[in-house]
């Protein structure tokens, strides 16, 4: 039997190996990285019977073509790329058999920005600091995937080893159209009190919100729309750098917010005025330049007791 591999023939705008990220290295300045839309990667892995943390491919817009060197079980989730095997249309969000020598190709996504390809056994490139994710900011992890690469596939392990995955297809919510306003739930951030009352109205108000600018990548999305002005007391204030998370909404001096994604810097020196709930960061990672979004004010879910409401900082 030939070794299980994926031979890459075409990559389109960009293909990266990603898993759930590099955990536990932030204190050495290494960010988490990992799939920008974690939920879609997890779902793809579950479909093929992998552990959720197996490495898969993150495909920007589409355009990937791979050939299996041996029979592989794969699934494509996330952005709505048409999927074909040897030219024949096959479903997304479904368990697919890819026979030896057959070609899997992804067309251009109609909606969403990033598709995920999971393969049973996982993409088995060598991990760096415990993860197979490529961190675009630090240049850490497996190099971006290029035509001619041959990606090793690991052995199928876990509870389903030797068995067929038990589902064929998963139902997923419909995608928003290009003109819909995507609502991202966010919690007020540590420095929300740096903003003017008018800026707070923009931040939480029911207005049309912001558009994702062309300055958008795995590090973050720069948003254009209402400027978030600082109040008098903080106009000239300098903030010592502090830790960031994916989903943090930072306001640089220009006033256009930046919504950080997977490859955010570990620390940042501008005020964080809100942080998007983890589940909704996955939606943010699927926004295209030009798409409209707004924030909806949320509180941290019920596991936080009333007296630890995140809206007000707390003395301890």
């Amino acid at each position: 039997m030939s070794p299980r591999r994926l031979r890459v023939e075409r990559t389109g705008p960009g293909v990266l190996v990603e898993d759930l990220g590099r955990i536990g290295w932030a204190q050495l300045g290494v960010t988490r990285s990992g799939a920008a839309d974690l939920r879609s990667l997890r779902r793809a892995n579950r479909l093929v019977g992998n552990a959720e943390g197996a490495a898969g491919l993150e495909i920007l817009i589409g355009g990937l073509e791979v050939v299996a060197t041996a029979h592989l079980v794969v699934a494509v989730t996330g952005a709505t790329c048409p999927v074909r095997i040897d030219g024949r249309p096959v479903p997304r969000e479904a368990v697919l058999d890819l026979p030896a020598g057959c070609r899997l190709s992804l067309g251009t996504a109609a909606t969403g920005l990033r598709a995920y390809l999971a393969v049973r056994g996982g993409v088995d490139v060598p991990p760096v600091l415990g993860s197979r994710s490529f961190d675009t900011l630090a240049g850490l992890g497996p190099s971006p995937v290029a035509p001619g690469d041959v990606l090793p596939v690991g052995p199928a392990t876990g509870p389903l080893a030797g068995e067929r995955p038990r589902v064929d297809v998963v139902p997923v919510a419909g995608w928003t159209g290009p003109e819909d306003v995507v609502v991202l739930r966010a919690v007020p951030g540590p420095r929300v009190d740096w903003l003017t009352a008018g800026a707070l109205d923009h931040l939480w108000g029911p207005g049309s919100g912001w558009r994702v600018s062309a300055d958008a990548d795995r590090v973050g999305l720069r948003l254009t729309g209402p400027v978030l002005a600082r109040d008098e007391a903080h106009r000239q204030a300098e903030l010592p750098s502090e830790g960031l998370v994916r989903g943090a909404v930072q306001v640089p001096p220009g006033g256009y917010p930046v919504l950080f994604l997977a490859d955010h810097p570990v620390t940042g020196g501008y005020p964080v005025v809100a942080a998007v709930l983890d589940a909704d960061v996955d939606l943010a990672a699927q926004l295209r330049p030009g798409q409209r979004m707004r924030f909806a004010r949320a509180v941290v879910p019920r596991t936080i007791r009333r007296e630890t409401s995140p809206v007000r900082p707390e003395e301890a």
């Binding site: 955990i23 536990g24 290295w25 932030a26 204190q27 988490r32 010592p240 750098s241 502090e242 830790g243 960031l244 998370v245 570990v266 620390t267 983890d278 941290v300 596991t303 936080i304 007791r305 630890t308």
Partner: peptide, 23 residues
Amino acid sequence: VQDLVPAERTVLVRFDPRRISPA
């Protein structure tokens, strides 16, 4: 708890909310 990020005046404590509650 997955990551601790010390900085000049803050320590960020990042956790997996599926495994431990914010409280």
